[in-house]
């Protein structure tokens, strides 16, 4: 469904953020991208929908090659890729509803969106999504009145209302407390399953990734170091990705947390 071929990004400063990355994501697969800060996780995600222009390489979404598209064709393809951000990236001075509806911008013309005259079907879908994430009665609140977890839910709605085939998720939990982090991760993964979406989730928290996803990619210095199932993440693997550290601790913690999960 998504295929990256020799994807490379070199910043003007000379930093090589991605070194010829090859990756294939089948439809409906939720994948976690782990790795230390500066490993190129963010760049990878942004090269897919070309918020960052890749230096070379190809990105196939379905049959469409994205890196050579002109701006209007690119916009059409971006509608098929919902994006969820670390700091939520909601337009803070707009209402929750406007933020959700802004996911439809690729589908409606400028004046319709400017006058907030979205099609009724979009509005219904927005209500349905808000209801699904439990924020229905917040629709007319301004985004900056919400808590972090609530904002991220709105961000999820905005991505889903695009009716995407793929979710690009950039550190969805980095600004949230542990409990909310888990709720958000679970929500994302549930929604992906419900709708059969593929997702690439950048995440710092290895333990959290292990709980929810089907496949883990480890990135180090812009190259893929690990590709496998979450339970194949051994201390040795983590050492190759992150460097020397006592990893037993992290992995044990996961087990405990999974027990916690099962208890209630």
């Amino acid at each position: 469904m998504l295929r990256l071929v020799e994807l490379t990004k070199t910043y003007p400063t000379g930093d090589q953020a991605l070194k010829a990355v090859n990756l294939e994501v089948p439809a409906g697969q939720v994948l976690a991208l782990i790795g230390p800060s500066g490993a190129g996780k963010s760049t990878l995600i942004r090269c897919i929908n070309r918020l960052v222009e890749p230096t070379s390489g190809k990105v196939y979404l379905g049959d469409v090659e994205l890196t050579t598209l002109g701006s209007s064709a690119l916009r059409r393809e971006r509608r098929r890729m919902g994006m969820i951000f670390q700091e939520y990236a909601l337009v803070e001075r707009l209402t929750v509803m406007e933020n959700v509806l802004s996911g439809r911008l690729g589908y409606v013309g400028f004046w319709r969106s400017f006058l907030r005259k979205f099609p009724q079907a979009d509005i219904d879908e927005a209500f349905r999504l808000l209801d699904r994430v439990g924020l229905l009665d917040m629709a007319d609140k301004r985004a900056d009145e919400l808590s972090g977890g609530q904002r991220q839910r709105v961000g999820i709605c905005r991505a889903l209302i695009q009716d995407p085939a793929l979710l690009l998720v950039d550190e969805p939990t980095a600004s949230l407390d542990p409990k909310t982090s888990r709720q958000i991760m679970r929500l994302i993964c549930e929604l992906c399953e419900e709708r059969g979406l593929a997702a690439i989730i950048n995440i710092h928290d290895v333990a959290l990734a292990q709980i929810f996803v089907q496949r883990v990619i480890g990135l180090r210095f812009g190259a893929i170091e690990f590709d496998g199932k979450p339970d194949e993440l051994t201390p040795e693997v983590l050492t190759t990705i992150y460097g020397e550290e006592d990893w037993e601790q992290t992995i044990e913690e996961v087990d405990e947390e999974e027990l916690d999960e099962a208890a209630p």
Binding site: L51, S102, L105
Partner: peptide, 21 residues
């Protein structure tokens, strides 16, 4: 805040929509 602009761009909004939203 640039991330808000990025988010609107990522939805596939046009240049003017990115400006307006």
């Amino acid at each position: 805040d640039h991330s808000q602009v990025e988010a609107i761009t990522a939805t596939g909004g046009s240049r003017w929509q990115v400006m307006a939203y």
